[in-house]
Nucleic acid binder design. Structure first.
Length: 611
DNA sequence: CCCGCGTGTCATTAG
DNA sequence: CTCTAATGACACGCG
């Protein structure tokens, strides 16, 4: 009982520690679930459930494919599959289950409409190599997004399919002209979408978590649920939009040209799978093409003051998307300004992704810190109007998830995107809400980081550093170097920028280090608890064994004496246990051995006593 | 005033 | 050799 209470107490203690750790880890972007075993287990179960569902779907698809293939026979001349004559009775029976399952899946399907799975079958025939994988990718997206859809929303819009007059018959009654059916099928936007995703999958194997952008938070955008995905479920990286994010620079529209898109695309994309690359780009980067063609590169060639650059941009820049949010563009900016000001240090930390940086040669490898902190001190004592210009600074703030820079490096148009995306992460409510939820050290942290931030910000401002601290710290090495090379900074500016970057990185590292340390402590405490339990268990076992041993010795002694009492010599007298002993030889036989030594000693004792 | 805690920073080391 | 992350040590501010 006491032990149990101990265990409970220690687990409660652990939970408290976990609370503390969690509150700290908000800075680092870690979430409570990381520490919550139950939650992780739930996640695991959910994941397994999803996998099972996925497996079922795949199985179904394969079954249907088999059924379809059974219906068709290979034309050995053309290599095409052609439908078998309907007279084949066994095949008919083989087909029947297919209809049943289809009816189960898509009750809206009419007989002359083609189900999505049938389309997938055709896809499988046309792209046999990657069939299973890519089919799973398509299904994956629906599976992943399914929990976020409204429940009455079907897995795909069958009505759209059945309304099309061009849709061929289902396989059972399919016309022999499969090729024509294909041409019609390929005009379906869903399939284009799917194919596009497949191609992208082959091109782009790396997926990034969706950046926490204000656009996503905007309820005007119909794929708002993705925001929750990014907030809580970044594990599900295999989501189409995240991949579109990587290819929004035009590769996708080229694969899915707008004229092939049905009017359905223009409607609100209610499913993730319904996103066309086009609509996605339109919503997020409506002027991407314009930007590209204009060749305007944001900061490039405007090193002295880039803040004023943004308002001069064309009216439909992604930055201006900011103002598309319902009437709160400026308010939101102000709000985030005030929220960011005290907390931006931690905000920077929270979004830092160590994986974003890649080892690279520094352009400024001379390590010149000629104008290091000591030289900046005089600027530190100028708490004046730094805040008044934060809005300008923040307008250039940076999205630190490493996604955009990576894209920009690949596409060779780094500047204008890096300079515009910054705003997005400042409005990310996750980091601020994280701090708001932190029950302790909030005020303290605010004040301190206010001081801290105004220092670096003031220094940066004093030296007219044309980018924000967040950018300086969070840019991957390559992009950072590229950014530096794009601006002819003087020695002092360079030194300050490198100092800021070093400090910021080290701050995050220190936070990580402390977090690990706390985790180690928690782990050691739990180890200690379990070891204590083990010790208790072993001690009780030991005492139990001692008791048993005593008991057995007692029994053995009793038995021994009993055996002796039953032994008789030739005269019928009993042997004395003090004069004889029973000994067992190696072959198992038992001998009655006189205790010679003892008797001898006894005799000697007698002899001695007589002397 | 002292103390403990959280945090940022610097110097050093390891990889 | 260089770069970055990790970490010990210290300083600072706050309650």
């Amino acid at each position: 009982m006491i032990m149990e209470m101990e265990v409970m107490g220690s687990s409660q203690q652990d939970m408290n520690l976990i609370d503390i750790l969690w509150n700290q880890d908000i800075d680092l972007g870690a979430r409570r679930e990381v520490f919550d075993y139950n939650h992780r287990q739930k996640e695991h179960e959910l994941q397994r459930q999803r996998e099972l569902d996925e497996e079922k779907r795949l199985h179904l698809v394969r079954e249907q494919e088999k059924a379809l293939l059974a219906q068709l026979q290979l034309d050995e001349e053309t290599g095409e599959y052609i439908p078998r004559p309907p007279s084949s009775a066994p095949l008919q029976s083989a087909v029947t289950p297919l209809e049943v399952t289809q009816n189960v899946n898509f009750t809206d399907d009419t007989d002359d409409a083609m189900s999505f799975d049938e389309c997938l079958q055709l896809l499988a025939e046309t792209f046999p190599v990657e069939e299973t994988e890519n089919t799973s990718v398509c299904l994956d997206t629906t599976a992943v997004s399914a929990p976020m859809m409204s429940p009455e929303q079907p897995a795909l819009p069958p009505a759209t399919l059945s309304q099309s007059p061009l849709i061929p018959q289902p396989p059972q009654r399919m016309s022999p002209d499969l090729e024509q059916a294909w041409m019609e099928l390929l005009s379906l936007p869903e399939l284009q979408q799917c194919l596009t995703m497949q191609m992208e999958d082959t091109l782009e194997t790396t997926t990034y978590p969706l950046p926490n952008s204000p656009e996503v938070q905007n309820p005007n955008y119909t794929f708002y649920p993705m925001a929750s995905l990014t907030e809580g479920e970044t594990n599900n990286v295999n989501v189409c939009p995240a991949e579109f994010m990587n290819t929004f620079d035009g590769s996708v529209p080229s694969m899915a040209p707008p004229d092939n898109l049905s009017p359905m695309e223009a409607k609100a994309p209610q499913l993730n799978t319904d996103f066309s690359a086009e609509s996605f780009c339109d919503i997020f980067y409506p002027n991407a093409i314009v930007e590209e063609s204009s060749g305007q590169h944001g900061l490039e060639g405007n090193e002295s003051n880039t803040m004023s650059d943004i308002p001069n941009k064309p009216p439909f820049t992604p930055v201006d998307l900011y103002s598309l949010s319902p009437g709160d563009a400026f308010d939101r900016g102000k709000q985030n300004l005030t929220a960011e000001l005290p907390d931006s240090d931690s905000g920077i930390s929270s979004n830092t992704s160590p994986n974003a940086s890649s080892p690279g040669k520094s352009v400024y490898g001379d390590g010149s810190f000629l104008y290091s902190d000591s030289d900046m001190e005089e600027m530190d004592h100028n708490p004046g109007s730094a805040e008044s210009d934060y809005s300008e600074m923040f307008s250039l703030d940076f999205q630190p998830d490493g996604l955009q820079p990576a894209v920009s490096v690949l596409t060779g148009q780094p500047q204008h995107q890096q300079e515009k995306n910054p705003k997005q992460h400042k409005t990310d409510p996750a980091e601020e809400s994280g701090h708001d939820n932190a029950p302790f050290t909030k005020d303290k942290q605010k004040k301190r980081s206010e001081v801290r931030l105004s220092r670096d910000e003031q220094r940066a401002k004093a030296l007219k550093i044309p980018f924000t601290v967040a950018m300086i710290i969070n840019l991957p090495v390559d992009d950072f170097n590229e950014l530096m090379s794009k601006h002819q900074l003087n020695e002092a500016q360079l030194a300050l920028v490198r100092d800021i970057r070093r400090r910021g990185k080290n701050k995050v590292a220190a936070q990580n280090c402390r977090k690990r340390k706390m985790e180690n402590i928690v782990g050691l405490e739990s180890d200690l608890d379990s070891l204590k339990e083990e010790k208790e268990r072993l001690l009780s076992e030991k005492s139990r064994n001692i008791t048993n041993m005593k008991e057995m010795k007692q029994q053995l002694n009793t038995l021994y004496l009993e055996v002796f009492s039953m032994l008789r010599d030739e005269k019928g007298n009993t042997y004395s246990p003090s004069e004889y002993s029973l000994q067992q030889s190696t072959d198992g036989s038992i001998f009655l051995v006189p205790r010679i030594k003892k008797t001898f000693i006894k005799r000697e004792d007698k002899h001695l006593s007589s002397l």
